[in-house]
Write a protein that binds this DNA or RNA. Structure first.
Lengths: 205, 205
DNA sequence: TCAATTTTAGTACGATCGGTCAAAAAAATC
DNA sequence: GATTTTTTTGACCGATCGTACTAAAATTGA
């Protein structure tokens, strides 16, 4: 399932160019502005080229999302794997998530736009390969409970852990929206503050 | 600026019907599905009727947003005005915000959809009368600082207060997105949990 | 160098968008 | 009951959407 065809050098370059232009438009002007015509104009090519290199617009969008997932996974996994406590894991999860947003600013903004906008033809939220919010929440819930057993966190019911987990995710997602609006935001400091906030919110009394 | 014309009974009823149908569609199927054709179909009328009662689609959307703002303001203000401490104010702000979402579920979901989707023709986020996120954040920041002076909250820099304020807003906005997905959510309990989370996050060590 | 292949530009298509409008229908007024 | 006013319908407009397709251009390979 790794390489379905091996793309030529030119093909790969074109695909990257198109995706980069799409990310630029989506992150700066919003999902609705990212028509094939606008993306082609931004790239200085005919929109037929996009159809040639991507099977559909959905395919292009899908690639943008899963590309970011790949980058994010590669970036985050080693840090998370190195953690030995739930406390360290959650702090790292928050901090590295924010720092990843710093290094992939436009891409993160674009994917956030995509996820909040993309729906199927019936209006139901579209599902993206690899992106599973519920699973993320579940991992955080598990870690919160583990932190209680390890003596670092207060007692949680399943519900209270779930609310805290959702709040952590909301803080990170919300930061993405803020990023789209304000360009001058000290993300290192922001990461530190978020870690402090949720460490205090979860800690043993 | 209160009453610009005095609407007839029928006119008022039609406007409410159209707005209700628009809210229904936006909250259940998303902003993109809420074309004039779909709204008219949902209402069982011709789409010309919408144009007759609203000067434009933007006008309709604007009404939906400012209607909710009116309701929210009426609901929230007395509770907030009754608070004598910053701690009480912020706890009340969180709790009543969530409870308001409980009683105006679809409307809140719809307006959240609208605010995150509506852009002007250039792609810049559209500004809504009465809705000013920055101002909300600023009030929260002010209250956090006041809570420090009153001895209930820890020390905040301007930045750290702003991050916490933004996190509170994100938690509430994020809840709206959750509401759109899951129908069975105990909002009273959710409100209590959020109050606990942010009380712990802000409190004096 | 010349044929085969890949890539591109450009046009056209059907669908849908928000909005307009004339004429029909309904309601209000006298 | 006749006339005026309000409301509704349904067809239509120009614009834009994603996509399909053809023919030209560029590249590749022998």
């Amino acid at each position: 399932m790794k390489s379905q065809k091996k793309l030529s050098f030119i093909e790969e370059a074109r695909r990257n160019q198109i995706m980069t232009c799409a990310i630029e438009i989506i992150s700066s002007r919003g999902y609705a502005q990212a028509s094939l015509a606008q993306i082609a104009k931004e790239a200085g090519i005919s929109k037929g080229v996009i159809s040639y290199h991507f099977s559909s617009k959905d395919d292009l969008i899908e690639q943008i999302v899963s590309d970011l997932y790949e980058s994010g996974s590669t970036f985050m996994t080693p840090y998370l794997a190195a953690q030995t406590t739930a406390l360290g894991w959650i702090n790292t999860y928050i901090e590295k998530n924010v720092l990843f947003m710093k290094s992939h600013r436009k891409h993160v903004i674009a994917v956030t736009e995509i996820i909040f906008h993309a729906r199927d033809e019936e209006g139901k939220p579209r599902h993206f390969r690899n992106i599973d919010t519920d699973a993320t929440i579940n991992v955080l819930v598990k870690m919160l409970h583990r932190g209680t057993m390890e003596g670092d966190f207060r007692e949680f019911t399943d519900f209270s852990a779930r609310v805290l987990a959702a709040t952590i995710r909301s803080a990170i997602d919300g930061l993405s929206f803020q990023l789209a609006a304000s360009l001058d935001l000290d993300l290192d400091a922001y990461a530190k503050e978020l870690v402090t906030i949720f460490q205090m919110a979860a800690r043993k009394v």
